[in-house]
């Protein structure tokens, strides 16, 4: 085995030596000893060169990291303390951007909207995905077709889905209102009435993403041992009791994963309000991401947009850390 690879074992050596179990380095077998401690003589230079060749292999990623992650990150940190409109020189403003953020009601409204979206979207996502996953886990006809059909929206472009639903939701020409009219329900301004707009977007986002979570729940359902259901049946449990006492507890890790993935996805809500509502009506669908985008690319307040982005990242971090703690406690 090449020492280049085995060398990585060196870092474990002290721990291995502390161990009471004889290690391979302590082995008396001469073959093993030679394999892990080859004689070092004239090839030393070559090896050092080989080590440096490693830089060549990682250089594409390093270049990518430097250009697309490292530089923007450092630049964003610089922008936090400046006013800059892209074409004029930067102006140092100290902590003015942060002071403005705390006075900016629209940003906090956008955060509230994002929170409302998460509260609507996550439970709906879990309920619908779990229900459909249970149905698709049964031996039903055309099961493969339905599994593919429910997954299809996941691979369709978000912009296309938003445009499609925009048409479905249209007040006077939309299919949804036409169907409701059949049962005598008056036309609803799905995207133009302040109370309906965010729930309508949450419904659309659920339709778009539910396929992914169905797959996750299917994996979870298929890993529940059949013996547990058999034992429950022997104990006389009915279908409801089996669901609440066996299925749901066994799916806890999957549910937490779905919650975390939905939370992260929900925080990045952008395409739907951008295409369908522009943040209206009455700013009720203005998401944090959309507001940051508008500050940066509509009004060219790059410094302030960077500050909003930084604050938003801190809030997301806080929420994810809290969720993680909760998961670990569970």
């Amino acid at each position: 085995m090449d020492r280049w690879i085995l060398g990585s074992l060196d870092c474990w050596a002290p721990a291995l030596q502390r161990s009471s179990t004889p290690t391979i380095q302590q082995s008396n077998n001469p073959a093993i000893h030679r394999a892990i401690n080859p004689p070092i003589h004239k090839s030393n230079t070559l090896m050092r060169s080989r080590d440096h060749i490693g830089y060549l292999f990682v250089s594409p990623y390093l270049l990518h990291f430097a250009v697309f992650i490292g530089f923007p990150l450092v630049f964003t940190l610089i922008l936090l303390f400046h006013r800059w409109d892209i074409v004029s020189p930067m102006v140092w403003v100290g902590l003015d951007n942060f002071a403005k953020l705390f006075r900016d009601n629209l940003f906090w409204q956008a955060m509230l909207n994002t929170g409302i979206f998460l509260l609507l979207h996550i439970p709906l996502q879990i309920a619908v995905a779990l229900f459909l996953a249970i149905q698709l886990n049964e031996r039903i006809k055309l099961r493969g077709f339905f599994r593919a059909a429910f997954f299809l929206p996941v691979v369709v472009s978000g912009v296309v889905v938003a445009i499609l639903w925009d048409q479905l939701y249209a007040k006077d020409t939309g299919v949804l209102n036409a169907l409701l009219a059949q049962i005598g329900v008056a036309k609803i301004g799905w995207l133009t009435e302040p109370h309906f707009a965010m729930p309508a977007i949450a419904l659309m986002a659920t339709w778009k993403n539910v396929g992914l979570y169905i797959v996750l729940f299917l994996v979870g359902l298929q890993s529940v041992p059949a013996q547990m259901y058999e034992a429950a049946e022997i104990e006389g449990a009915n279908a409801g009791q089996k669901f609440w006492k066996v299925t749901l507890p066994m799916l806890n890790p999957t549910i937490f994963m779905v919650v975390i993935l939905s939370t992260i996805g929900g925080f990045s809500l952008f395409i739907e309000p951008y295409i369908m509502t522009g943040g209206g009506p009455m700013n009720r669908t203005l998401s944090a991401m959309l507001y940051i985008y508008k500050q940066g690319f509509f009004f060219y307040h790059m410094g302030y947009a960077a500050t909003l982005g930084f604050a938003f990242a801190m809030i997301v971090l806080l929420v994810v850390v809290l969720q993680r703690r909760l998961v670990e406690r569970e």
Binding site: N44, T45, L46, R48, S49, H52, I53, Y55, L56, S59
Partner: peptide, 20 residues
């Protein structure tokens, strides 16, 4: 940094380490 100090100018290692 890329090809070390000890490589000789005409060694295969040197030629190879010139690649970066």
């Amino acid at each position: 940094i890329l090809h070390g100090r000890a490589s000789t100018p005409f060694s295969p290692a040197h030629r190879f380490s010139n690649s970066p």
